[in-house]
Design a protein around this nucleic acid. Structure first.
Lengths: 195, 195
DNA sequence: GTCTATAGTGCGATAGAC
DNA sequence: GTCTATCGCACTATAGAC
């Protein structure tokens, strides 16, 4: 990882970025969502923030490093939501997580779906320790540790439903608040929580 | 469209491909799923089927034409499922569609999710008449024409849940039959169909 | 941290023979 | 339908000045 990373924040796994780095990652996430990871060049990222390619290379040695840092920045948001849910009393944890995931998905509705489903990023995360840890804790909170295929499929469907629905053509011109409310209601019903 | 297209099949919208064309589209779909659309070059497609780039260009004048044809080939599968469901008696239509979509998603679990969510293809389909028609009929069958945001969000979530769950890391090493059974059961429950 | 300049590679696409 | 050969271009990446 880049030597210019600052000390980690209090959240484990969260990564502090310099000003120049966060400008790059913000621009990259926006462009990845619009053109895909493979369809985004360093020139496009440099143009977006008004510098040259060489300035971008000074922060990240390769394009892969940018892709990984961008994906980790999005993962850190999910991680924060999970940690907030884990801090709740046991009874409230599941609902807190669902609410947090819906809020996050709606808040990042232009980027989330496209980024975390890109083949390159899926490959990056396949053996990524922090990613596997986040997924495991997410599943435990959502299914209460329910073993076997049932819990896996149920969790995969809920996550896919929320993160996928926000980018679906059916809801593109739906207001954020309306979308959030409907998603939360239907997600709770899917889990068998309160009506 | 390419002048070498043969006559359309009896299904409206289905597109017949020559032998060389279907080899290209099959290879392209596989590579798109593995590397993304932007991360797949014509050279990779040519290598995959053992010909040169020029041979590929003889079938499709640009890369965009290949991407569009590949996306339409996947769309045609969904179209066939919808038409089969519409041919059922009214009472059975919704369940027939859900079953068909689950079968299709599991059958194409390596390609479906990645292809139809790629930014380039989403852009192609945004103003694509056949795509909009398929989406409209799908929603009508699933929600019974339920108006307003509720029907839109509910349909978007179900489609995203099914097509997204099949590629989720949680279920990668799950057997096709087990996955199909769980998906179908949970999808029915989400719609309020039979237990 | 940003710049100019450039090396080296692979890209999409075309021409023309078989 | 496939080939060889090639063009012009955009790409990733690096070197070195400011």
């Amino acid at each position: 990882m880049s030597p210019s990373k600052l000390a980690a924040l209090h959240e484990p796994g969260a990564i502090a970025l310099s000003g120049a780095q966060s400008r790059i990652i913000t621009a990259a996430l926006d462009l990845f969502a619009r053109h895909g990871v493979g369809g985004t060049s360093l020139q496009m990222i440099a143009d977006e923030i008004g510098v040259t390619k060489a300035a971008v290379y000074h922060q990240y040695k390769t394009k892969d490093e940018i892709v990984l840092a961008a994906a980790e920045a999005e993962l850190a948001r999910l991680q924060a939501v999970i940690e907030a849910a884990e801090a709740e009393p046991p009874r409230k944890r599941r609902d807190a997580l669902v609410t947090g995931i819906v809020d996050l998905a709606v808040d990042r509705r232009r980027t989330v779906g496209t980024i975390l489903r890109d083949p390159l990023i899926v490959g990056f995360f396949a053996d990524h320790a922090a990613f596997r840890d986040v997924m495991h804790r997410q599943r435990r909170l959502l299914t209460g540790g329910e073993p076997g295929p049932e819990g896996h499929v149920r969790t995969a469907m809920l996550i896919a439903a929320i993160s996928g629905a926000v980018t679906h053509p059916f809801v593109v011109d739906l207001d954020d608040d309306v979308l959030r409310g409907q998603l939360l209601r239907l997600a709770r019903r899917f889990l068998g929580l309160s009506p």
